[in-house]
Design a protein around this nucleic acid. Sequence first.
DNA 1: AAAGTAACATACAGACATGTACGTATGTGA
DNA 2: TCACATACGTACATGTCTGTATGTTACTTT
Lengths: 220, 220
Amino acid sequence: MAAARAGERRTQADRRARTRSALLESAARGLSAHGYANLSLERVAGEAGYTRGALYHQFANKEELAQAVVEWVGETWRAEVGGPASAHEDPVEALCALARAHAVYCRRDIAGVMMTLQTEFSGRDHPVARALERNVRPLITEWGGRIAQARESGALPPGPPPEEMASAYFGTLQGVTIALAGRSPHDVRLAEGAVRGVLGLPPAAPGEPLLTPPGRGAAP
Amino acid sequence: MAAARAGERRTQADRRARTRSALLESAARGLSAHGYANLSLERVAGEAGYTRGALYHQFANKEELAQAVVEWVGETWRAEVGGPASAHEDPVEALCALARAHAVYCRRDIAGVMMTLQTEFSGRDHPVARALERNVRPLITEWGGRIAQARESGALPPGPPPEEMASAYFGTLQGVTIALAGRSPHDVRLAEGAVRGVLGLPPAAPGEPLLTPPGRGAAP
DNA sequence: AAAGTAACATACAGACATGTACGTATGTGA
DNA sequence: TCACATACGTACATGTCTGTATGTTACTTT
């Protein structure tokens, strides 16, 4: 919210990095709340404590800013959700751990970025749409593969093609977590329940662990 | 797409009604695809075969057009999805029937309207946001009530407050159906699976009926 | 410490969309 | 058939946003 404190003498690179991340975070909040078209760069810069001049010094244009936000959110998601979940060997346990970690991840206000942009750019030919595709497509193939793997072992019942099922899986996950908006202690359990449902699994036993054992819950 | 055929002599009221519904349908498609902010009234009118003059003769402004679309979509949804599902006496069967009917309803391209507008206007004070609230709020209370009812009878396990659970239910439902984008034969089964999951129910038996018995599948 | 460069602010031009005023055509009632 | 109302098209005024050009402040280098 506040700009750089006056009086502290810092290096240029540090200065640049700080304002860049402040602008990115502000833009992420803005995109999550208002979408791309309604995103005013003046408000983005203002809420970060700068003006549009600073923004245009760091990013070539609005498109590039949005792409940078997508990449940034994608990286934090992979670090906090995708990576830890992938570490599970058992594919079913990995899919459930992913859902739980995603629910925790969505407790922040950045959560809506991907969903908002996806609905806004679905079916359009736009650089931001391609940035989304680059970040989402690998997930569909990776987790579609784990779904196929789980089916072969009999851990999952048969169903639609694995990639279609993966799409449904992520859609469901986004749907629950956005509806709950990260409020509550219930978000984790409900997210896991929903994805177990699409996958065709029975409800989890009530006494199961709530947080993914190998990964950390949420590291800022 | 095409405007009124020349040569046919029709009444004024008929003429008005036809262009109004053409504009509404075009606006619904536009909202579903591009959202509110990106919706160009010139394109809306153009795709309906008219100009902005006709649009402004029927609707006071962009806001009123969007509100009319929300009401229109809400009515068709209640007629094709909400009403038939409510007819089921058993609350659990009603909840599952709702999910199946919603999946069928979402096979049209109008499906994204509510979702798009909800994400675009969430947490904002705007006439369109209030129109959405008027159409969505009653659903939360009605189906929250059925959830509470099902819990009392032991048909549903305990969980978060009924209205929170209803929010999660609808969020999940929107998530799956939008991810599948009506492509399918699987959409119906996956939608039911997802909502059974959030509610804490086991998977449906494989031989169960796929379409809601009392309601019709999809009547235009 | 002074010159030079990077970070940021301010001022301006162009594009685009909404809303309005007004003109034209088509249907309606006496 | 003639006066009138309604449906629709066209032209313009206004505001807002992006993107660029230029000025000012903070840091770095010699």
